[in-house]
Simulated assay, not measured.
Amino acid sequence: MDERSGHFARGDRMPQKLKDEVRDRIVEAAGTVFAEQGFTAARLADVAERAGISTGNIYKYFEDKEALFNAIVTAPIAARLLRLLRARLREFERLDRWEGATASGSEAARALLSFWIDHRLAVLILLRGGRGTRFERVRTMMINEMERLASAYAEKREGGDALSPPARFVLHKVFARTVDMIADILEAHQDPQAIQQAVAVFWRYQLAGLQALLNPGPR
């Protein structure tokens, strides 16, 4: 600060800190709006209202809506999300009991959960569908991948086409709701510890159900 004028000099940190804070608010608001509405339907006016600023202020930080979206979601993030999910799912082929495959007992689970936390807004958008963007199929790909590996596991264990049509229907709905639940958790919580606790509760519930459905033990 200039002691004579009482104003911040050009190189002082406070103005930049304020700019960073506004940019973070815009990104946070945009992540939620894109997740709720999809890219096509989302308006910068909605982002501005949620961020508590004017629409014109957004253009000081981002050229347009696409630039704002691209600041949150990138192709490497989407690709890594799918790779970590596949690593997590392959782990179940090696386990006799699935209840312990939470973040506390599984390296693959810890890696996936950490990624969700580190890229919360991007993952939230991808799980909600990313409608109107090149990432809109990521959600469907995740559900299909979970279905495919679960079906392959059951068929390998039981032989032949182990899952009946009703069981396949249930699996599809279970995994669709799995994606929705993770998105709900990431939308409701920003604090990493709160996300970890919520996911731990969900995984305990989900893993027990999948264990009973796909790996029921001796008949």
Rank of each mutant, 00 (worst) to 15 (best):
T133H: 01
S164G: 01
R86H: 13
G31R: 02
A51Y: 01
T133I: 09
D64S: 09
D96L: 11
E21S: 08
V27I: 15
N144E: 15
A108H: 15
R25A: 12
E66G: 09
A154G: 01
E91N: 10
D161R: 05
R80M: 06
S114D: 15
A87C: 04
G130C: 12
L89K: 03
G100E: 08
L163P: 05
R94E: 15
F39N: 08
T133M: 03
E145S: 10
N70F: 01
R90N: 13
N70Y: 01
G160A: 08
V123E: 04
G129W: 06
G56K: 11
D20E: 14
E66Y: 07
V47K: 05
K156C: 02
E28H: 09
L18Q: 13
E145P: 05
D24R: 15
L126A: 12
V33M: 06
E147W: 08
R25T: 05
R94V: 11
I58F: 02
D96E: 14
E107N: 12
A109L: 07
L127S: 07
L82T: 10
A48P: 05
G31T: 08
L84R: 13
I53F: 03
N144H: 07
T40H: 07
T55K: 13
R86Q: 08
A108R: 12
P76V: 07
K156T: 05
K19Y: 07
